[in-house]
Design a binder for these strands. Structure first.
Lengths: 186, 186
DNA sequence: CTATAACGCTACGAAAGAGTAGCGAAAGCC
DNA sequence: GGCTTTCGCTACTCTTTCGTAGCGTTATAG
């Protein structure tokens, strides 16, 4: 009947929240900081969101985007293209604190675990297509379950990411993929 | 010259700190809680440690223990024994929040990253021996760098641990090791 | 044009955690 | 046995962050 909630304010809040998350990670995330960055008054933030945690969750959710699906005709080619996209993301120094912080927090917070899983599902959607296509071509056995394949495709990357992030830039993707293929064939 | 610092109090502080870490993880770790659990007064804790963070770090350091090194004569046998020890540790529900929290916090805190690395180094010491022995037997090429082997040995485990922890109990260790061996041979 | 609700602002209150001050009591060194 | 320092206790300050109240101002639906 009267003045509606400003959609612009909502967008500014989320934009600032996302930026803050990328800069300071989960720990540095405070509503006061979101307020000062966005130019939106803290009280207004609480008019748009029921709690600070809801701002955080909504901001995280908003970062989930679809990933491109390679289709080169061979499993090896598809995996190479997939890695070309994923490795730079892992190598990004800005993303690391946020994503690892999320992994840590998700261990005790079910809502954050849901987000973590949703992010992963979206990011690995292309992998499912790749694996299915390889099965259809007879390059992989039908009995291979996706989760097992996933563990071998992203696991080594994950281990390196956590332990020696600085070495990810120089990674030899071809060698990595060849090892993965050998593991999947076993 | 006078009364010395109680070694018993020091032990009780660390014992309580470790217990708290395992139960509540890094986030739930407070000096007040350590004080009430240990029965040692908070003021006394600050006489023994210069800061709460030092209590945390010392407690974490104290949990680092040496790992057994298998020696079965074959790479496959050694890896199987190694996995028999490591998998139950990963599968432990109590350890997960703490370790993943540590991973997350280590992304922004250099001191915690040092601890994380130290823990990992200790835990993977047997792996180095195993890999070296396999090289000496000619089962692995001398050119294989340890870090690359490590990523393929623990990476898949790590991926599963983060994503689907509940499935770790039923893991088929033999199949896992066979896939790892195939990857290392590639 | 007017009523209604959102906006921004300043100021609070509440809670949690770190770390400190001051005290009487107790324990170890000599 | 006495001197010294620790211990436990209570109480306090400081800081951070969350979330809310009140108020004057502004936009907008009808």
């Amino acid at each position: 009947m009267a003045r509606p909630r400003s959609e612009e304010a909502n967008a500014k809040i989320l934009e600032a929240a996302v930026g803050l998350l990328f800069e300071k990670g989960l720990d540095g995330f405070t509503i006061d900081e979101v307020a000062s960055r966005s130019g939106v008054a803290k009280t207004t933030i609480y008019r748009h969101f029921s709690s600070g945690n809801e701002v955080l969750v909504t901001a995280l959710d908003s970062t989930i985007r679809p990933f491109p699906t390679p289709d080169t005709g061979t499993l090896r080619g598809d995996l190479l293209e997939f890695m070309e996209v994923v490795v730079p993301i892992f190598a990004s120094a800005q993303l690391r604190p946020l994503m690892l912080g999320l992994v840590g927090a998700a261990a005790t917070d079910t809502e954050l675990f849901r987000i973590q899983t949703a992010m992963l599902t979206e990011r690995t959607m292309p992998l499912r297509t790749i694996i299915d296509a390889a099965k259809a071509r007879g390059q992989l056995p039908d009995s291979l379950v996706f989760e097992e394949a996933f563990d071998f495709i992203e696991g080594p990357l994950l281990a390196q990411w956590i332990q020696r992030p600085e070495t990810l830039i120089d990674i030899d993707i071809e060698r990595l993929v060849d090892r993965v293929l050998a593991a999947l064939a076993a």
